[in-house]
Simulated scan of single mutants.
Amino acid sequence: MTTDFSLVRDSFQKLVLTDASGARFEDVRPVRAFPIQSPSQGISLVLENGQEVAWIDDLNDLNDDVRALIDTELEGREFMPEIARIVSVTSFATPCTWHVETDRGNTHFVLKGDEDIRRIGRESLLIADNHGIHFLIRNMFDIDKHSRKILDRFL
C-alpha cells in the first residue's frame, strides 16, 4: 500500500501534504465525493480555496497511518448520525418530535415538515432536523418493522 504523497500533522494540528515532487501543501482537508453511497471511495484532498492537491480512489488502499489521519479529520468535519431505530414520534403531522436510536446514542429531534425527509438513491433517506443536523437511514428496507411503519406514514 503506497501513495504518491505523504501526510502529517503540523504543530497546529493541520494536515500537511507533500507530493511526489516535494511540493508542500499546508492545511489540506479531505472531502468525500460520495459520502453516503461510497464513503470510503473518492476522497479529494483540497486546500482552503477548494483547489484539489490529491485524489484517493479508496481509503482502504492507503497505509494505516495516512488512513487514520484522514479518518480522524473526516470524523471531525462530518457529523451525520445514522438512525438504527425510530423509537417513537409525537405525531404523524409535522412539526413533530422523533425519538430515535442512532450509532451515536439515543436522541430526539424536531421534524419541521415532510420535505425534510429526502430520498438518496433507492434505499437511503436523509432527514434534516430543525437545527440543520442531518440523520441518515442507510437502508430503509433493513430497518425494524416498527420503524418502517413510522417511516411509511411520512413517505
Rank of each mutant, 00 (worst) to 15 (best):
R153Y: 05
G50N: 11
P95W: 04
A33W: 00
R153G: 00
A20S: 15
F12C: 02
I150G: 02
E101S: 09
K145T: 14
T18M: 08
A128E: 06
T102Q: 08
H99D: 13
S40E: 15
I43N: 10
S88G: 09
D27R: 10
S40L: 11
E52Y: 06
A23M: 14
D116F: 03
R29N: 14
H131T: 09
A23F: 08
R138S: 14
R24M: 14
S11V: 15
S38N: 14
E26T: 14
L111C: 01
D57S: 15
A54V: 04
Q37S: 11
D4Q: 13
I56G: 06
L125Y: 03
W55T: 13
N139S: 06
R85D: 03
L155D: 04
W98A: 07
L15P: 10
I137A: 02
R9G: 01
G76Q: 15
F5P: 11
F5T: 03
V46P: 03
Q13H: 10
A84D: 04
D58K: 06
D116M: 12
S38K: 10
V100S: 13
Q13S: 08
N139K: 08
L59S: 13
V53A: 05
H146T: 01
S21C: 06
N106A: 14
N139Q: 04
V31E: 15
R29A: 03
D61S: 13
M1Y: 09
D27H: 15
V28F: 12
Q51Y: 05
L15K: 13
D27N: 15
L74N: 10
M140Q: 13
D19K: 07
G42D: 13
R122Q: 15
S40V: 07
P81A: 01
A84N: 10
M80V: 06
L151I: 12
D61N: 14
L69H: 15
A68I: 02
H131G: 01
D129Y: 02
N139T: 05
V8R: 15
E123M: 08
D144N: 05
A128Q: 11
T90D: 12
F141C: 01
R85I: 00
L62K: 09
N130A: 12
V100H: 07
L47W: 10
N130F: 01
A93C: 01
G113I: 00
T102V: 05
T90R: 12
G105S: 14
P39I: 01
